[in-house]
Amino acid sequence: MARYIGPKSRIARKFGEAIFGPDKVLSKRNYPPGQHGNNRRRKTSEYGIMLAEKQKAKYTYGVLEKQFRNMFDKAAKSSGITGEVLLQNLECRLDNVVYRLGIAPTRAAARQLVSHKHIVVDGKVVNIPSYSVKPGQIVGVREKAKSLEVIADSLAGFNHGKYPWIEWDESSKAGKFLHKPERADIPENIREQLIVELYSKN
């Protein structure tokens, strides 16, 4: 399964945001990596700013270039605002839904749970992280995986009311995907219009 496996703290420092989850290194060194990271004065070009925004979105959701481009092309052909549709489609990925439900502490951990067949959709095991969850579908923890420490630790104290497009049922350790989220409800700090402008130049 293709995914980014490089140094995550360097990437987080590059964007100045904890895009992979809590990061102790970022809190200590909140400036770009490299020998001159704290003293750079070079102005980033307009193209560079747009490219960085695309990279940030890719790293945030754990999607590689080809897959991200395919998702953009699909969003561009859909009705609605392309950038918003792109983010909505990213939010529908199974690994992201597992993360939003609090079943895993990070998207990377959610991908691992999905790949290892610990997650079910409508009662059936789905081990494809990029699977697109549809409104009305129920995503939950496989029965024999409910005792896993990583899942129990992640769910402990998680606020299940903060995402209005999903509904959690504690007794069944499952959540219902109610509808695609509105852009205003997606908390990620991504300027999707810059991504649209970048691809329109290519």
Rank of each mutant, 00 (worst) to 15 (best):
M1F: 14
M1R: 11
Y4N: 01
Y4A: 01
G6N: 03
P7E: 09
R10D: 11
R13S: 09
K14A: 13
F15P: 08
A18N: 13
A18F: 11
F20Q: 05
V25D: 12
S27V: 12
N30C: 13
Y31V: 06
P32A: 15
P33F: 11
Q35W: 13
H36Q: 13
G37T: 08
G37D: 04
G37P: 06
R41N: 13
R41H: 15
K43A: 09
Y47C: 04
M50E: 12
M50V: 01
L51W: 08
L51C: 04
E53Q: 12
Q55W: 06
K58D: 03
Y59T: 05
T60P: 06
V63Y: 00
K66N: 11
D73F: 15
K74Q: 11
K77V: 07
S78P: 01
I81L: 12
V85S: 03
L86W: 04
L87P: 06
L87C: 10
C92I: 05
R93Y: 02
R93T: 05
D95K: 06
D95L: 07
N96P: 04
V98N: 01
V98H: 00
Y99W: 14
L101P: 00
A104R: 00
R107N: 04
A108D: 14
Q112T: 10
Q112D: 01
Q112V: 06
V114W: 03
V114H: 01
V120D: 01
V121P: 04
D122F: 05
K124L: 07
Y131D: 02
S132V: 13
P135M: 04
I138Q: 07
V141A: 00
L148K: 14
L148Y: 15
E149P: 04
D153I: 06
L155G: 00
L155Y: 01
G157V: 02
F158N: 00
H160D: 05
G161D: 11
K162D: 07
K162V: 13
Y163H: 14
W165G: 02
E167C: 05
W168V: 01
G175Q: 00
R183W: 13
D185P: 08
D185R: 12
I186P: 06
E188C: 08
N189F: 13
R191H: 11
E192Q: 12
I195D: 06
I195Q: 09
I195M: 08
V196H: 03
N202E: 11
